[in-house]
Nucleic acid binder design. Structure first.
Lengths: 151, 151
DNA sequence: TATTGTTATACTCTATAACTATA
DNA sequence: TATAGTTATAGAGTATAACAATA
């Protein structure tokens, strides 16, 4: 009866967070979707898909990026038609970043790819185990040592 | 009975791999360990701790970095005494990168911090659940959609 | 005053190329 | 020839500072 659970999870996490692992995943998910979609611009697409149109400053605060960085990445997405800028009707200073239909499609495709890849790798698991794992992973991410401080 | 397990895991993964999440984790783990230890140099320390002294080209191949990048990061670690360079007795061209005792200590500290943080967040889980989760996470990382191709 | 979007600047990190030394 | 380590260079991405416009 070893008390190694923490170390076991730490090792697995180390592998998961490794740069080469993330690069491989992003490459798979964004393959064939155009040069503008990569590990830098995808968080913009994904963030807007999650919460709807919003300002660069607003989005940056959520995903931990400076608003100048959001502006630059949004430029790339706008150039290829995945994103549009709209004046904010409620705030004359702000500009809303909004996904185009094509932008929403890109997000759908990548999310489906990821979910499909995950389900494929779980194909040999008992369904109960897979569902329990999904619940536990979610709880772990929400409560774990890297969870965002509640503000 | 929904077939949403893949999407549930995908959502949790998205959160986990987010840049701000990783930055927060690295900040916690390396706090007070000196300027040279950060998200760029830690993979070097960790890689050497895992497999022992090895060449820059060798280490780079494993962790997915160019050998010039490994050289530069190793420079920083050598300057603060966490790493030493040694001639490779088996190959006159190579230089082995070896952790110093202080370097090994740093790795131990960060691994203990991470494991402790994880165990703390699992404190309220039934021990059986935690152990099952650790096993499943490991298997998922090894076999999942981002697993390295066997070569 | 404070905050918005944007641009210019300086800084960091990266891979490519080029060099010398050894297999 | 091929591969080792290292350095120089060019390219990409970042945050800071500064700007004009709006709250």
């Amino acid at each position: 009866m070893k008390n190694s659970t923490g170390h076991d999870i730490a090792d697995a996490l180390g592998l998961l967070l490794r740069r080469s692992t993330r690069a491989r995943l992003y490459t798979q998910l964004t393959e064939g979707l155009g040069e503008a979609v990569d590990d830098l611009t995808y968080p913009i697409l994904s963030g807007l898909a999650r919460t709807g149109a919003r300002s660069a400053a607003d989005l940056g605060r959520e995903i931990g990026l400076d608003r100048t960085t959001v502006t630059r990445r949004a430029d790339r997405l706008e150039q290829v038609g995945l994103l549009q800028r709209q004046p904010d009707p409620d705030d004359g200073r702000a500009t809303l970043l909004a996904l185009t239909e094509q932008g929403r499609d890109i997000v759908s495709v990548t999310r489906e790819r990821l979910a499909a890849g995950i389900e494929s790798s779980l194909a040999t698991w008992p369904q109960e185990d897979a569902q329990a794992f999904a619940r536990q992973l979610r709880r772990f991410v929400d409560e774990g040592p890297f969870a965002a401080e509640p503000h």
